[in-house]
């Protein structure tokens, strides 16, 4: 393939940047959608219904899946390449350079955790919702009870009543937070849209976005965990 998006380092990075950007936008949408669940199960389920096995939701899902695959495949490709470029003989002593964030040097590890969390999340929700509809069903069994494919609120309620899920999800969100603190400003840099004036601003935006995302997602998890486990007092 003779395209700079595939055969040049800067081009490959652009693919990471754009796919990353699209994923961040999706995550922001997903987070806003989740927040609805805190306030109203009906409202949340209405959104779930919109995102059932209809054509636009399916196209969206396929698109997202493609983005994740591309983002991850390119990450692997680049990392292998980078590992080779580093050479066989590694430094015996390595010291952290001042001003270099931990996240920036561990994006692949963070990415793998995020991906792992995503798979878990898909098994918890998508497999019980859109997938059921794709397969022609309307409900599935979750923790001994049947839940409708459109009743996202019930799924949330059930999933986050389990403490281990809460822990896993929070770890997942934390990894995502780290990943995004670097990823969000980095995608501007890679696209060439950054300079010394904008670095502090972009890094601030990155912190803000990742923190909002973390808090937004975590809020739902925590609220539902609290609701489920101390129903008497709330």
């Amino acid at each position: 393939m003779n395209c700079f998006l595939y055969n040049s380092s800067v081009g490959k990075k652009l693919v990471m940047s754009i796919s990353g950007c699209a994923l961040v936008l999706f995550i922001l949408f997903h987070m806003s959608m989740n927040l609805a669940a805190i306030f109203s199960a009906e409202a949340y389920n209405m959104i779930c219904e919109l995102l059932g096995a209809n054509w636009y939701a399916l196209v969206g899902t396929a698109g997202l899946a493609a983005l994740v695959v591309v983002h991850f495949a390119y990450a692997l490709l680049l990392t292998i390449n980078n590992y080779r470029a580093r050479g066989k003989q590694r430094y015996a002593v390595e010291t952290k350079e001042p001003g270099v964030s931990w996240a920036s040097k561990n994006m692949l590890v963070l990415g793998v955790i995020v991906l792992g969390g995503l798979l878990l999340h898909l098994s918890h929700f998508w497999a019980k919702m859109q997938l059921v509809e794709i397969l022609g069903g309307h409900e599935s069994e979750v923790g001994g009870q049947m839940i409708a494919a459109t009743d996202g609120a019930a799924l949330i309620q059930y999933t986050f009543s389990q403490w281990y899920n809460v822990v896993l999800y929070l770890v997942w969100f934390a990894a995502l937070w780290f990943h995004l603190t670097h990823g969000v400003w980095s995608m501007f840099q890679t696209a060439g849209w950054a300079n010394d004036t904008w670095y502090p601003r972009l890094k601030c935006i990155a912190q803000l976005v990742s923190t909002i995302i973390f808090l937004g997602f975590a809020a739902v998890v925590v609220v539902f965990f609290v609701k489920a486990n101390c129903g008497c007092c709330c």
Binding site: S9, K13, N81, N82, A85, E97, V100, S101, S104, T190
Partner: peptide, 14 residues
Amino acid sequence: GFGNCTNTGACQAE
């Protein structure tokens, strides 16, 4: 055979 930039900023620090 040089690697790809991942914007860690280690280069500018050093």
